[in-house]
Design a protein around this nucleic acid. Structure first.
Lengths: 179, 179, 179, 179
DNA sequence: TATGAATGAGAATTCATTCAT
DNA sequence: GATGAATGAATTCTCATTCAT
C-alpha cells in the first residue's frame, strides 16, 4: 500500500513492492496472480469490513437521518487513521481501467445502492424531503465524502480533520435533506 | 478526446489518436510535446472557459447563495452536452500520476478556492451558517458535483439528467448551508 | 537463419537476431508477429518453392520410378547449398512444439501424401512391388532423406555430398521397390 | 516420460513431473541433477538395453542381411509397446539443443556406426552391393526407422503397425542393397 | 530422505518518440 | 509542414533450482 500510494499504479514496479516487503520478486506471485490483483487485494479487504460494519450497525440506528450520519462517520472513520489506504482508494485504484471496470464498479454500485436505500426509506418515513432523487442524493453524498477524503489524503492529512469534516458534512446534508 | 474516453490514458496508443485524427503518428508531435500534454490540452481548454465564465457571471449574482447555484449550474452545464469530456475529466485525467500532480492539481486548487471564497463571503454576509469550514464545504461541493458527473458519464448519460441533478443538489446544499 | 542454426530456437534471443540483421529489437516486430513466426517464415518460403517445383517437374517425368528419383533429387538439391537452412528444417523447426503442431505438420503431411501417391501410382502401373504400404514407404523415404540431411548439416557439410547421397539412396530405393 | 511426451521438453515444468511422480519438487533433485538430465535418463536406459541387445543378438545371425533385419526388428520392437518412449526419442529429445549436442549425439553416432559396420561387412562378404557408402546407408536406414516411428507415435499408434512396417522396410532395403 | 516456500536471473514484446525524407 | 519506419528502453512474470526445516 505504501508503494502504490507513493507512485501510483502504473509507475509502481512490482520489484519495488517486493523490495519494500523484503521478499524476492517471484515471491509476490506465490500470493498474488498479477500486479492488478495485488492492488485490488488492498481494497477488497476494507470494503468487506465496511459492508459488514454497515450490516451490523445500521439496523441499530433509530431512523434514516441517524443511519445516514452513521454511514458518513463510518466511511471517513475507516480511512481516518490510514492515509495510504485513503490515497489508494480515492486515487490509485482508479488508475487501472480494468480494475475499475471488473472489480471495483460492482462494489461501488452496491455501496451507492445502500446509501440510496437509506434516503428512500427516510422519504417514505417522512424524515427526508420528497423532491430529491435517492440515487442522485447517494452519488452526491458519496462524491462529497470522496472529495473530502481525496484532499485530506493528498494534503497534510492531520489526525482528527476527517472526523471534524464528517460532522460538518452530516450537519449540512441532514439539514439540506430535511422535509 | 474520443479515443482517450474509450480506452483510458494508458491503454490509448498515440498511434490510435493519430489514426482517429487522420494524421500520421509523427504529426501529433508537431503540435503536442507528449502524450500527457495531449490529454492535458483537452482539459486546459475547458477549465479556462470555466474560470473566465466564473469571472464574468459570478459578480452579476446578487448574493452568495445565488453564486453557489450559478457555479453548480455552470460546472454541470459545461459537461452536460459532452459525455466524452465528462469522462476524460472525471476518470481519464486521474490515471496519469504525473499529470495530476504537475498540471491538474493547481487548476483544481484554484477552482476549489473560488468555491470556498463564495462560502466564506456568504458566512460574512450572514447568508450561510458559520459552523462550517469553507474549505471542507468547497471540497464536499466539488466532490458531489464530480460524483454526479462520474455516474452520469459512465452510465446512460441521458440529456437533461445533469440539469435536473444540478437543481436538486443546489436545493439540498443551499438549505443545508442556510444559517 | 544463421542465428537460429547456431543456437537453436529456444536459446536464440530475439535481440541476437536483430543484431545479426543490423536492426533494432523492435524493428523485428514490424515484420514478424513473434519469435515463432520469425522462424516459421524461413521454412514457409522454401516449402512453397518445393511444392511448386513438384507441381511443375513431376508431370514431366515418364513414370513413377523417375518421379520418385526426381523428388529425392529435389529435396536434397534444395538444401545442398544451404547448410543453415538444412539445419533449421531438420533440427530447429522441431524445437518449438507449437510450431510443429500448428504450422509444420500440415505441410509435412501434404508432402508425405504426395510421395505416397507416387508409390501408389507405381504400384498401379506395375512399376513398383505391391506388398508395400505406400504410406509406410513414403514415411521411410522421407525419413531416410531427413536422416541424411541431418547428419550432413550437423557434420562437415561438404559440397556435393548430398548429391552423391541422393543418387545412392535413389538406387537402393528403386531397386528395393521394384516388382 | 508421460509428462514429457504430453508437453514437450520446454513446456514441461519440473513441478508437473514431481506431481505426476507423487513427490515434492525438491525430491527430483535428489535423484537428477537437472531437468535435462531427467529427460536424458529416460533415453540412456533404453539405448543401453538396445546396445547390449545388439551385442548379444547380432553375432548369432548368420550374415549381414540377417543382422540388418534383426536391427530393424529390434529398434521398432523396442518402441512398439511404448508410445511415450517413441515420442520422447523421436521428438522431445531433440528439443533441447544442449542435450542433443552433449549427450545424445555420441550415442546416436555409436549406433549409426554399428549399422554402417553391418553394411560394410555385407559388402566385404559380397552379400551387399559395393556402390553404396556404408555411412550413407546407415543414416538412411536410421532415418527411415525414425520417420516411421515418428508418424506412428504422433498418430494412432496401433499395436502391430510397427511390426508390419519393420517387415516391409526390411524387405525393401534388403532387396535394394542386394548385389 | 523428503519437503516446498522462496529465490532471482532472464527475455519477449510494446510503444512513445524521433528524424531523414 | 507532414510522414511513418525505425528505435531501444523498460518491465512483468515464469520457473529451474536451492536449502532450512
Amino acid at each position: 500500500m505504501k508503494v502504490f500510494a507513493r507512485s501510483g499504479f502504473h509507475a509502481t514496479r512490482v520489484s519495488e513492492v517486493a523490495k519494500a516487503a523484503g521478499v524476492a520478486d517471484g515471491t509476490i506471485y506465490l500470493y498474488f496472480d498479477s500486479k492488478e490483483e495485488l492492488l485490488f487485494s488492498l481494497f477488497e479487504d476494507r470494503i468487506d469490513k465496511l459492508l459488514s460494519f454497515m450490516r451490523e450497525e445500521l439496523p441499530k440506528q433509530p431512523d434514516a437521518p441517524a443511519r445516514l450520519r452513521a454511514v458518513i462517520d463510518m466511511q471517513l472513520g475507516l480511512l481516518a487513521g490510514e492515509r495510504d489506504l485513503a490515497e489508494v482508494i480515492t486515487v490509485i485504484l482508479r488508475q487501472s481501467t480494468r480494475l475499475m471496470k471488473e472489480f471495483a464498479t460492482p462494489h461501488f454500485t452496491a455501496y451507492l445502492d445502500a446509501i440510496a436505500k437509506i434516503v428512500a426509506e427516510g422519504q417514505a418515513a417522512g424524515t427526508f424531503r420528497q423532491d430529491i432523487s435517492p440515487h442522485i442524493a447517494a452519488r452526491a453524498i458519496f462524491g462529497a465524502l470522496d472529495g473530502i477524503t481525496l484532499t485530506w489524503a493528498l494534503g497534510r492529512a492531520e489526525q482528527g480533520a476527517l472526523g471534524r469534516a464528517a460532522g460538518q458534512l452530516a450537519d449540512v446534508l441532514l439539514r439540506g435533506l430535511a422535509p
